[in-house]
């Protein structure tokens, strides 16, 4: 069920004076069940990249394969692809349109042509998965808070039972509590349902705690693609492209330089704490 991108190029506004390459020779292989962080500066091509993964954009050259099939073949069923590769856009609450939350979540499965019962069952399950309270089910989505709206929007994609879930900056514009809730929710989905997750973000701190692999995009190219601790070793290069390693990496690097025997590879706050305690002989 893996996604493979083979030498994908994409040029916006081809043949005009505004033409510019959004993706340059991108080759990726995302295996089943992986939790991937896709990181890049604004305009680095990360949003364009994920739109290629469910066939919303067509590469100017190169191929995208899902489950071994080229998704841009003329006889490929794009609708079923979009059910399998769920994409949650940035500020997904801006796409809510129904009179109540439950109906809005039903929109996705209904489009798949499922029977009414199955549609409602899926909508119910999805809303439960995102931790949405029953009492708000039949409220207008426009009366909810930002964080709640976003849950409804994510449920709207989850109700299609995707095998791969792509989220474009799901924490943008939320308060710290909302951020953590959403990120925990996503990681729960990964653990419990085993779906592949691609989390797009520009904050390393956001993703460092959760993902197994980080892909860094810079100016349309893949700059780094490795495990988090390997990527963060390049923290100086990351800074040059306008990104930064998590705060933890900096602390550990400086402690290391100051002569403390700490492991600079740790990426999460918890591990860092243990490392530091160990270095001071308190553990």
């Amino acid at each position: 069920m893996s996604i493979i991108l083979d030498h994908v190029n994409y040029i916006y506004d081809e043949d005009t004076a505004m033409a510019h390459a959004a993706l340059i020779d991108v080759c990726l292989n995302i295996p089943d069940g992986q939790f991937v962080g896709l990181i890049g500066h604004t305009g680095s091509g990360k949003s364009t990249l994920i739109q290629h993964m469910n066939g919303l954009e067509k590469p100017t050259s190169g191929c995208v394969f899902y489950d071994g099939k080229d998704i841009n073949d003329s006889d490929y069923d794009k609708k079923s692809l979009r059910a399998k590769v769920g994409l949650v856009f940035q500020y997904p609450e801006h796409q809510l349109f129904e009179t109540d939350c439950f109906k809005d979540v039903c929109f996705g499965p209904k489009n798949l042509g499922l029977p009414q019962k199955e549609v409602e069952l899926r909508a119910y399950e999805a809303l439960k998965q995102v931790g949405f309270d029953d009492e708000y089910f039949y409220q207008s989505p426009f009366d909810l808070s930002g964080g709640q709206k976003r849950r409804v929007a994510i449920a709207g994609v989850l109700a299609m039972k995707p095998e791969v879930l792509i989220l474009d900056e799901p924490t943008a514009g939320l308060d710290p509590k909302g951020r953590e809730d959403i990120l925990n929710l996503i990681s729960k989905l990964h653990e419990e349902m085993g779906i592949t997750i691609i989390l797009v973000s520009h904050s390393m701190d956001d993703v460092a705690n959760y993902v197994q692999r980080i892909i860094v995009m810079n100016k349309g190219r893949v700059a780094f693609d490795d495990e988090p601790k390997e990527v963060f070793k390049h923290y100086k290069e990351l800074e040059e492209i306008g990104l930064a390693a998590p705060q933890v990496t900096y602390v550990m690097q400086e402690l290391h330089e100051a002569g403390f025997p700490v492991d600079t590879d740790v990426t999460t706050l918890e591990d860092a704490k243990n490392e530091i305690l160990k270095a001071f002989g308190k553990c």
Binding site: Q51, N54, L56, K79, R82, A83, G86, L87, V88, F89, P92, H94, Q95, F97, F107, G108, N111, L112, G156, V157, M160
Partner: peptide, 26 residues
């Protein structure tokens, strides 16, 4: 928004005129 709804399986291009008009609501 069109892309976001297409990602949720919306279809703006096929079907009868009435169906297509209805599909514009989202």
């Amino acid at each position: 928004i069109m892309k976001a709804q297409m990602a949720r399986g919306a279809d703006f291009e096929s079907g009868s005129l009435i169906k297509r008009a209805k599909s514009l609501v989202p």
